[in-house]
Design a protein around this nucleic acid. Sequence first.
DNA 1: ATGCCCCACGCTGTGGGA
Length: 259
Amino acid sequence: MRIATWNVNSITARTPRLLAWLESTGTDVLCLQEAKTTEAQFPVAELRELGYESAVHATGRWNGVAVISRVGLEDVVKGLPGDPGYEDVQEPRAVAATCGPVRVWSVYVPNGREVGHAHYAYKLRWFEALRAAVADDAAGGRPFAVLGDYNVAPADEDVWDISVFDGATHVTPAERAALADLRATGLGDVVPRPLKYDHPYTYWDYRQLSFPKNKGMRIDLVYGNEPFTKAVTDAYVDREERKGKGASDHAPVVVDLDV
DNA sequence: ATGCCCCACGCTGTGGGA
């Protein structure tokens, strides 16, 4: 089984590339983030023509997540139980589904904006809710993973130049502690291999030639429990999909499983 | 070549991204 996560930065802008990518890679399950549309406008029909079912949690201009599967789609949960919300709004940042033998969450962790900002506190509270929501599945015997845009670089090596991030979000001890607390439920980091260069970055800013210069970050992560990680036969960042006109600023992370 | 920001909303800018 081939399972992937990809922040598409608007499903509307990315549908042609998404459909072509699903076909060319033979991906069975995709956890998608930043749909940036409503559930009604999500391209469910186009995906169904390719043989995929869609579980979509999206409400409009911002955020929006989905699980797309051609190997079954059961027990869908939209939203994080205990979601703290931001300014009294529970944003669409998490959706879960069981796809054949595997259960997954597709997550889009809040950005945080600046250390000390209310959005940063929200980010940390959101991580705590995520930890609580996945603990039972993480400890269970079924292959389970939380895939998505975590908006945290797990280690200094996961950004191109740590000195640039002095005082910034995405690299703070508190954010990394939140990742560690999440892993402590029984999840391991499935680190993909890069297709080029030394480090498996998954995001490159659109500006300042970041991609050609490989000024990237590894912030799209796959955290799996032991039944999941034991089944992994390969994992890579599909940087080819970051190239050219009409690319997302994130590349897909692809994981092959023997399940 | 990988190439100098892009998305939605909705309008001549604004907010958000990281």
